[in-house]
């Protein structure tokens, strides 16, 4: 049989949306949009916002949107690893705050060199993630419970370290929150870089492919020789490390580490993954989808601000969008 095998794109996971049907259907562009509901939604949303607010398509505003999306997106990339493996990570917001706090405390309060402080911060995120992983993989705790505990512990530690007050961020790191050449926000660059890292991890590394296998069918993965507990350590460790990066980016924008920073961001991160097509039952999810999900959230917030919609109503709209995205995705899968 000489069926034309449809290629899976670079972002195509095993549960990716491509490749359900043999080719011969509608033209490529139509298929791309049909198979990428989130991308279509983002483009639609941008078009609507552009029509309703003349300021929206302004370069400065778009870069602003990118900056706003950056922290959520970086957190969400880490969470994507966990969700693809059929887990959940609720601790990323707290871990982000704690990591940033460690950076500020070691550099500003203790006077350590900045590069060392950054390593400490990343190490803090990694350690929190590994503890999550240990509790899930070896303690057999449901990921919801393990990371819920970490959510509280990391937030508490951030408060302990800071004694409840913000600590100024060291200057070289605060540069991360500024712009390059006077127009390109550095957080957008970091987001793009982390997107590439996440895509490479998911698509090309042994651990990434294991995430899909574990999320798809943990027992089948185990019986095929994947060391599930060890891979879970990697997965949660990655998520914690990504959270640390997000925390540093957030603090650099504010020029200080705040103990209550990024509270509730874990929910935005999960929402970004789900809007981007990841399935909470595991095995499905892409870095590109998560990026689009985070952008959709940021565009919505920004657009609603430009339209002077009250912050109260914004919450209502964003909640509705999350539900809608999940519903559309469920319906599409059923047919």
């Amino acid at each position: 049989m000489t069926t034309d095998v449809k290629r899976t794109g670079p972002g195509g996971g095993p549960g990716g949306q491509a490749g359900q049907k043999p080719s011969g259907g509608p033209p490529v562009l139509v298929r791309v949009f049909r198979d990428n509901g989130a991308l279509t939604a983002l483009i639609g949303l941008v078009a609507v916002m552009a029509l309703m607010s003349p300021d929206f398509l302004n370069t400065g505003n778009l870069l602003n949107v990118g900056g706003q999306a950056a922290v959520t997106a970086i957190l969400a990339f880490g969470v994507t690893f966990v969700i693809v493996s059929a887990g959940i990570d609720l601790s990323v917001g707290s871990v982000a705050a704690l990591s940033a706090m460690v950076l500020a405390w070691t550099a500003t309060s203790q006077g350590l060199p900045v590069w060392l402080a950054v390593l400490f911060a990343l190490g803090t995120g990694l350690a929190c993630g590994l503890v999550n992983g240990l509790m899930v993989a070896y303690g057999r705790l449901p990921s919801f419970i393990a990371t819920l505990a970490m959510l509280s512990v990391a937030r508490g530690l951030a408060l302990v370290v800071s004694q409840g007050s913000p600590i100024a961020f060291p200057d070289p790191v605060s540069a991360l929150g500024r712009t390059l050449g006077g127009w390109l926000p550095v957080p957008v660059l970091v987001m793009a870089g982390m997107a590439v890292v996440a895509a490479v991890v998911l698509n090309l590394t042994y651990s990434g492919r294991s995430m899909y296998a574990i999320g798809g069918n943990e027992e089948a993965a185990r019986l095929s020789g994947i060391r599930v507990p060890r891979q879970k350590l990697v997965i949660y460790g990655l998520s914690g490390t990504f959270a640390a990066v997000a925390g540093i980016v957030l603090a650099s924008r504010l020029a200080s580490a705040q103990p209550q920073a990024a509270a509730g961001y874990e929910l935005d991160a999960i929402a970004a993954c789900v809007i981007g097509g990841a399935s909470l039952s595991g095995g499905v999810g892409r870095a590109s989808g998560t990026l689009i999900g985070a952008l959709i959230l940021a565009v919505l917030r920004n657009g609603l601000n430009l339209l002077s919609v009250s912050a109260f109503w914004q919450q209502v709209v964003i909640g509705a969008v999350i539900a809608l995205a999940a519903l559309v995705d469920t319906l599409r899968r059923r047919t």
């Binding site: 095993p14 069918n217 089948a220 019986l223 499905v284």
Partner: peptide, 11 residues
């Protein structure tokens, strides 16, 4: 236990 049902034949 044998298959990843929602993954491709290749995977």
């Amino acid at each position: 236990q044998g298959l990843l049902l929602d993954a491709s034949v290749g995977e």
